[in-house]
């Protein structure tokens, strides 16, 4: 994996939010960083290609457009772990999936365009795996922000 150099890190820190809505936003950001626009664009492209950045653009809040995000977990028997991961990951509604150290050892986020899509996705996972999905819909959001220094 590409190791981000000091300029890459300055670019990442400068672009964690507030990308300008002016006609030439890359030029405006580049001026703030003391580099030129072409250099900024090339660095962004390289970091996206190398997966140092997973994306660059607007972060949409799916709930604001009628959709839903729900965290859910499964307690998967160890000997079935890879098989179940394959079944769960194959569903397009599964946006992220992590293995974690707990009896509930598979934690994933369901993202659907409608609120009703969550129940359908949960039913599909239960049908495919024969396991019970434990859903943790958020009841309140205190903070969601990327604020890790690069």
């Amino acid at each position: 994996m590409l190791e981000p150099d000091p300029l890459d890190r300055r670019i990442i820190n400068a672009l964690q939010g507030g990308f300008p809505l002016c006609e030439e936003p890359y030029r405006a950001v580049a001026e703030g960083l003391g580099i030129d626009e072409a250099q900024l664009i090339a660095r962004l492209q390289r970091m996206l290609d190398a997966r140092v950045l997973t994306r660059f653009g607007p972060m949409f809040q799916i709930e604001a457009i009628g959709g839903a995000f729900v965290l859910a977990a499964l307690a998967v028997p160890e000997e079935r772990f890879d098989e179940v991961a394959g079944l769960v990951n194959a569903l397009p509604e599964v946006a992220h999936n992590y293995r974690r150290e707990h009896a509930l050892n598979m934690w994933f986020v369901l993202a659907t365009e409608t609120v009703g899509g969550i129940a359908q996705a949960i039913a599909a996972i239960e049908e495919l795996t024969g396991l019970t999905v434990v859903a943790f819909p958020k009841e309140r959001e205190y903070f969601v922000e990327m604020k890790l220094a690069a």
């Binding site: 994996m1 590409l2 981000p4 890190r9 670019i11 990442i12 672009l15 964690q16 939010g17 507030g18 990308f19 809505l21 962004l44 970091m47 190398a50 997966r51 140092v52 950045l53 997973t54 994306r55 660059f56 653009g57 607007p58 972060m59 949409f60 809040q61 604001a64 457009i65 969601v144 990327m146 890790l148 690069a150």
Partner: peptide, 22 residues
Amino acid sequence: LAAMLDSGVIRRIGAVPNHYAL
């Protein structure tokens, strides 16, 4: 885009770093 930022449809416009790469 400005209106969607104001209404919360867009949280922010920016880069999403891969935590591992950092």
